[in-house]
Nucleic acid binder design. Sequence first.
RNA 1: GGCGGCGUAGCCGAGUGGCCCAGGCAGGGGCCUGCAAAGCCCUAGACGUGAGUUCGAUUCUCACCGCCGCCUCCA
Length: 460
Amino acid sequence: MLRLFDTAAGEVLPLEPREPGRVSMYVCGPTVYAPPHLGHGRFSLVFDVLRRYLEWSGFAVTYVSNITDIDDNIIKRANEEGRSTDEVVADNERVWYEVMDALGVKRPTHDPHATAYVAEMVELIGELIDRGVAYVTDDGIYFSAQSVADYGLLARQSIDSLQAGARIEVGEQKRSPIDFVLWKFSKPGEPRWPSPWGDGRPGWHTECVVMSLDLLGEGFDIHGGGQDLAFPHHENERAQAVADGKRFANHWVHNGFVVVEGGEKMSKSLNNFVNLAELVETADPRSYRLLVLRAHYRSPVEVTKASTADASEALARLDAFARRAHAAEVVASPDGVTGAEPDVVVVDEFRRRMDDDLDTPGAVALLFTTVHRAHSAFDEGRDDEGRALAAAALELCRAVGLELHGEAAAVPDAILAKAAARDAARAAKDWATADALRDELVADGYVVEDTPNGTQVRPG
RNA sequence: GGCGGCGUAGCCGAGUGGCCCAGGCAGGGGCCUGCAAAGCCCUAGACGUGAGUUCGAUUCUCACCGCCGCCUCCA
């Protein structure tokens, strides 16, 4: 069984699904006011890998990831651009899914939008007021953090120490610095929804409580997100659910940050974000997945030109291997690997590593070792062994969503004609002509390889 | 100030009280090739500093130095 670090417990614990054979997970999605950045890519990939691994292991996974489509940043952006918040949201949500598709991130089972759940949020806020844990002020409705005895669980700090570091923004009417806003009364010109206490909009922390409980029910299995969401966002979600008498998430999973060159976190206040769409356009998106897989999900990962280039080289090795496997008729598809039974020892070892708190670096190391062993087996004519190892390697890739390019990409006829001409020249031992043709093919942007079947070309 | 993490070969990045070892990229020598490419074989190098525990520490303990995160918007 999979063991995962649980932020609330502070240790690695077995994942014990609420229902046998089914895993329910909620992963905090983006606020769509700007294009996604590398950090979004990381959490999406980390949880996509977790989801795929669970599915590969035989679980039916319900994966919910929200779209926050109302918040201060969206309003600010709409004002700056002289557009409606709806337009800002629509544009950025479209880009979000384009980039997710490019990264090979599976679409969520459900992607609830905050604005579709305002009535339910108002209802929850009413219950919290009735229970005496929320209070109304001139500017909004706040949650009283002290009313939850173990507030600070996810921050792993006491209420006192949190209070010592907290502060109140100008204009806020909190009773305590660690209290947080549930409902903001709207100012003129701002989007608004009705509530018994006055028109306004929800605070950020309420939507995820309502949407996760609605779509997954009480005591759902996994709640995930970036490490910076553990506190205050997840802490505050949990506080509301607990105060409302609900069983909330069972297992809290948080991924580490993306850091820029020099090891500093990418963050809003430092304004050092790198746009994810740019990365996806300028590099093979699969190399980001490989980069994410090569680091443990809780460790920081440095994403730079150099580290992506490094991952691309490693990926090229895997693609070259997939071509060789393909030639040996071992082929991967989304449904499985055909052509040979995967080597059981390798697959078991993979499972053992992944079950150990999602040890993807260990799994990647195993993958490369297996690729190496398969090459050797083929080189030495042990074809059955090579195919079994190749099938295992492809199966591992499939389990973590790493798609390899085993089939030659389509090549225009003109290029194929040059390759054929080169073969003819080589047969005639006309090396000068053969080399000239190779230079031309390379100049056309192709990689040229000699094989027993003649010149093979593919886009480089 | 409070809480927490990290420091591993040229670079990225795992891991372990000793034993043969992560892995990738880059490097060196060789095989294969008409020459390449891909692949294979061999190879080099490391555990921030100081002390302690131990027969033995990169791995455990303490101190120190350095870097980073959370306590504020953030994935």
